[in-house]
């Protein structure tokens, strides 16, 4: 299949992700730290399930590959809104 963007926010291509898996990434955060997939506005809400499927089909473990842990703030938030008391 032609190369294509997987992480729309950060413009990360399928080939980038496959390369990261090749290099040893076995989790969503591992991919993210290598190629920035999931680091953008949507915080992996769009690409994480796809990447997880890719990892699963590549590494083929019994357990689903680890996903990234949700952390506060769970959504992008204006600093102005964040610091209101």
């Amino acid at each position: 299949m032609d190369d294509m963007i997987i992480c729309r926010c950060e413009g990360v291509y399928l080939s980038d992700i496959l390369k990261a898996i090749e290099e040893g990434a076995s989790s969503v955060p591992g991919i993210k730290k290598r190629v920035r997939a999931g680091m953008g506005y949507c915080q992996g809400r769009v690409c994480q399930p796809v990447i997880r499927d890719m990892l699963e089909s590549k590494t083929g473990g019994e357990k689903m590959p680890p996903q990234q842990r949700a952390q506060t703030p769970v959504r992008p938030v204006l600093l102005d809104d964040m610091i209101r008391r």
């Binding site: 506005y41 952390q71 703030p73 992008p76 938030v77 204006l78 600093l79 102005d80 964040m82 610091i83």
Partner: peptide
């Protein structure tokens, strides 16, 4: 931390924090 940032750079009030760790 957000307060400290906006104190130093007032215009960051218009910037978004997209995640924290």
């Amino acid at each position: 931390i957000g307060e400290a940032a906006v104190r130093a750079f007032p215009l960051l009030a218009k910037a978004r924090i997209i995640r924290a760790f």
